[in-house]
Design a binder for these strands. Structure first.
Length: 880
RNA sequence: GGACGGCUAGCUCAGUUGGUUAGAGCGUCACAUUGACAUUGUGAAGGUCAGAGGUUCGACUCCUCUGCCGUCCACCA
């Protein structure tokens, strides 16, 4: 026993974790350039951390992300790859600005933007963002993330701004960024445009009115939004609709609630003749669908709603000017009613578009904005995706489809590929300009009618576009902008890391972000941004509800870590889940894993305190040893394979099974009896620690200090190789023996310690024969055990020695009659099973068609069942 | 309205190309317990795999339909 041995009785993570993290970081192992030589030779392996928004603090979703990415990083690092995991944060333009505005309003500044002005306001936002970044980085460290802080990035730093400007200029030159007057989503609360993906729908009911514009108008229309009808320029009907044939092509004058309007009657197949009156009032200014109709038919666009969400001066009669939309809606309904124009009112369900941030009802307004054209062909700047050559004409949509269709990017789980393709099919032009202040400024300058794309001012008299870019425009470039593009020197240094190995994120931002990264990388670099996409599920509470402040069911990683330890929190987020499935998290679950980390600690404590580090390897190998080695080899192989396939839960469960059941509960007990296993125990412990390290970096690294004194960090230790034959016949035979011994013990035929019982087997010199004929040996050992133990326990020296240590309680004798009942039942079941097997094997149809493997398997099962039946019969006969 | 997913033990979930007695963790129950660990050990109970058809020698697994629950997409005005 080592005199320096010091391990607390229970694992106490707090304090230790900070020290370990600091030591790892100081060692340089987070930075690929400082990894050992074998990693320098290894394949580059890069993960970009999805940058958390600088809006405050991290939640359990972030914790899940960090846990999984850290497992990947540590696993591949140990396997010898040159691992680069880049941390970073996202300025999250609108989200951050909104957050700060709300804070300022709480401080008593009623209208922060108006009162502070652009410069002052931005100062406040920047200060807030800096603060958030600090908090976030602290939390990322707490999770044990082995990311390279020397390469920390921010989506809004100078280098990323250079990337944004470059891509913008490229796309502008290629004609796929355009400025245009089109109907866009407008958030009246925050006074900015929004992309289609920043909308949510709210289920409400609306009053569907059916009416005529005026008494002389020949066609009745239906709408839930009468207040927009001041902007109608057409009525559309289906081309085959005979009711309205006579009017198609004519332009009619009407007076709608006091406003003169001109209505052209058009025919378009998009109109559903069965809905309402079959005639649709077309409002090109305030409906995307109507805007498309208007474009096809060359209709004028008359906006009637202003940016404040109220009716516009000049566009509506005086009585309505400045009215809110809901007031106007009521007034119009009353007016129509009074004039006798209203034919029908119906309550209908309606999906209202609302802003994802803020929840305001989003209006559709025509505005001059910047767009990325998804469907417009352009000439490629380089060979792309191995399919297109430089100069080929393609659309962004085609690039996005090809990246996944060609499997250059695979999505795990693959059902999300379907969802991805579906989204791409419906992809429309992407409005990228925002009227908020916090974000990448649009690199466009105006002078009179002139327009120029430029990073800095082109000269005297030029003014920059006041708008900023959608935050996803910059985060879409993350994989290559973070690696230094377009700075040649930095980019060349990191070129080998792109495409990155895997993008790991929640499925909720598949469209926002994942798809846009594919767009940006295939466009700008000509290759996919990542080889794999791993999507984890959302973290929910124990009842499956979303965690939210209002429900009060939020679990905060920073509360849980001091309580249970980081390792336990990490495990609880990865075990018991599959890719893309939501995780139901409870404190009870975390507690279970805390218990497990403590178990690992105590396994190590026992081994390290009872074995000698300098002991020579044992010259004899017992059955138990071979059994352990075989199991470990199988587990090592299997865990490695599972981690390669992103099966984190399955890998951890298998390891837990081995660690707890095989190593702790079985082998350690046997070792107490057999002795002389110091070297094997220590070696096994080291392997187990290494296998666990990606999942539980802290407890394993801490034990490693004692388990492998003087060695480098476990973090940079080579991943275990599966040694020995995993599929030894002895292994399966022993498993049966284990069961058999348990039974003997239960029968009071052997001394009750499973370890002692097992040691009989190990002592006996049967194991070479065991490999040849396991069933025969099994029966033999069974008989052997019975004769040896029932006749003369005293002649069994091992048993008497070990008995006290494992707690033999003679008073706990079993009720033999009850046992006999069990045997009888089991015998019955076995006989039935044998009969069914025999029947099946006699079935010629089956034997003719079933593969040899299956039939062979059944024959073996049959033999086993027969043996079991005989044993049971013999036992019953003997006891009666 | 369209699409996708879930329905397996009391609870949370595995189940990898269909292979024949369906698995784990937690919980429950019984027993044990002072030298690694009560943050423990040994064992037990518990499932006609949502339902109905079909394909097959064989279906939790593939196909069709139905029923709940959930998610995403969708401005039938």
């Amino acid at each position: 026993m080592s005199t320096e041995f010091t391990m607390a009785k229970a694992y106490e993570p707090s304090g230790l974790e900070e020290q370990l993290y600091a030591a790892w970081e100081a060692s340089g192992a987070f930075n690929p350039d400082h990894l050992p030589d074998r990693n320098q030779q290894g394949e580059p392996y890069c993960i970009l951390m999805p940058p958390p928004n600088r809006t405050g603090t991290l939640h359990m979703g972030h914790a899940t992300m960090l846990a999984i990415e850290d497992v990947l990083a540590r696993f591949h690092r140990m396997r010898g790859k040159k691992v680069l995991w880049i941390p970073g944060t996202d300025h999250a333009a609108i989200a951050t600005q909104v957050k700060v505005e709300q804070l300022l309003i709480k401080e008593g500044i009623k209208d922060p933007r108006a009162e502070l002005g652009r410069e002052k306001f931005l100062e406040r936002v920047v200060a807030f963002a800096e603060d958030s970044a600090k908090t976030i980085n602290h939390q990322v460290r707490k999770m044990g993330s082995s990311c390279d802080w020397s390469r920390e990035r921010y989506t809004f730093d100078a280098e990323r701004n250079a990337a944004v400007n470059r891509v913008f200029a490229m796309m502008f030159e290629d004609g796929i960024i355009e400025r245009g007057y089109r109907v866009v989503n407008w958030d009246p609360q925050f006074q900015t445009t929004l992309s289609d993906d920043e909308l949510e729908t709210k289920e409400t009911t609306a009053r569907l009115l059916t009416f005529k514009y005026d008494a002389d108008f020949p066609i009745a229309i239906s709408t839930t939004r009468p207040e927009t009808k001041f902007g109608d320029t057409a009525v559309a009907v289906h081309p085959d609709d005979t009711r309205y044939q006579a009017f198609v092509g004519k332009t009619l004058d009407a007076v709608f609630c006091g406003k003169k309007i001109q209505i052209r009657v058009i025919a378009d197949p998009a109109v559903d003749p069965a809905f309402g009156t079959g005639a649709l009032g077309v409002t090109p200014a305030h409906s995307m669908i109507d805007a498309e109709l208007a474009e096809r038919h060359g209709l004028p666009t008359i906006p009637v709603i202003g940016r404040d969400g109220r009716l516009l001066l000049g566009a509506v009669p005086e009585a309505f000017v400045g009215c809110t939309l809901s007031d106007a809606r009521k007034m119009i309904e009353e007016a129509l009613q009074a004039q006798g124009l209203l034919q029908e009112v119906k309550e209908v369900p309606q999906a209202l578009p609302i802003a994802q941030r803020g929840g305001a009802i989003v209006e559709q307004l025509p505005m001059k904005q910047w767009f990325v054209r998804a469907n417009k062909p352009f000439a490629l700047r380089q060979d792309t995706l191995g399919k297109w050559k430089k100069g080929d004409q393609v659309t962004l949509k085609e690039l996005m489809r090809e990246a996944v269709a060609s499997k250059q990017t695979s999505i795990v789980p693959d059902r999300f590929e379907k969802i991805y393709f579906h989204w791409i099919e419906h992809l429309r032009d992407w409005c990228i300009s925002r009227q908020i202040w916090f974000g990448h400024r649009i690199p466009v300058w105006y002078r009179g009618d002139e327009l120029r794309v430029s990073e800095g001012s082109p000269g005297e008299g030029w003014e920059q576009d006041p708008d900023t870019l959608d935050t996803w425009f910059s985060s879409g470039m993350w994989t290559f902008s973070a690696l230094g593009w377009p700075n040649e020197e930095t980019w060349n240094r990191h070129r080998a890391y792109h495409p990155t190995a895997v993008l790991e994120t929640g499925y909720d931002i598949l469209f926002f972000w994942v798809a846009r990264m594919v767009l940006m990388a295939t466009y700008a670099i000509g290759e996919v941004p990542f080889k794999d996409v791993y999507l984890h599920g959302l973290v929910r509470d124990e009842q499956g509800r979303k965690m939210s402040k209002s429900l009060g069911n939020v679990l905060d990683p920073l509360d849980l870590i001091p309580k249970y330890g980081t390792d336990a929190v990490r495990l609880s987020l990865m075990v018991g889940t599959t890719p893309g499935m939501d995780v139901k998290l409870s404190e009870q679950k975390i507690e279970g894993f805390r218990n497990f980390t403590n178990k690992v600690w105590n396994i190590a404590r026992y081994i390290l305190s009872t074995t000698n580090a300098d002991a020579a390897p044992s010259t004899t190998t017992t059955l138990a040893d071979r059994w352990l080695d075989a199991r470990l080899a199988t587990v090592t192989r299997s865990v490695t394979e599972k981690l390669e396939r992103y099966q984190f839960s399955a890998a951890a469960e298998e390891l837990r099974d081995f660690t707890w059941n095989d190593l702790a509960d079985w082998y350690l007990e046997i070792a107490k009896v057999e002795g002389g296993k110091d070297a094997r125990l220590r070696r096994t412990l080291q392997t187990v620690l290494a296998l666990w390290h990606p999942f539980m970096p802290f407890v394993t690294e801490e034990i490693w200090k004692q388990a492998a004194p003087g060695s480098p960090f476990l973090m940079v230790t080579p991943w275990p190789m599966a040694e020995g034959r995993a599929e030894e016949p002895v292994f399966t035979a022993l498993q049966s023996l284990v069961t058999e011994m348990r039974r003997l013990r239960a029968e009071q035929r052997v001394e009750p310690s499973r370890a002692i019982a097992f040691s009989i087997v190990c002592e006996s010199e049967l194991w070479s024969q065991l490999e040849e004929n396991s069933a025969w040996i099994k029966r033999l050992v069974h008989a052997e055990a019975i004769t040896r133990t029932s006749s003369l326990p005293a002649s069994w020296p091992v048993a008497t020695q070990g008995a006290t240590s494992v707690g033999f309680d003679p008073a706990g004798a079993l009720d033999l009659a009850q046992e006999r009942e069990k045997w009888k039942k089991e015998l019955e079941a076995t006989v039935g099973y044998i009969a069914s097997l025999e029947q099946k094997l006699a079935n010629q149809e089956f034997t003719a068609k079933a593969p040899e493997k299956v039939i062979q398997g059944m024959r073996e099962k049959h033999a086993d069942a027969v043996a079991k039946r005989d044993t049971l019969r013999a036992r019953l006969a003997e006891d009666s």
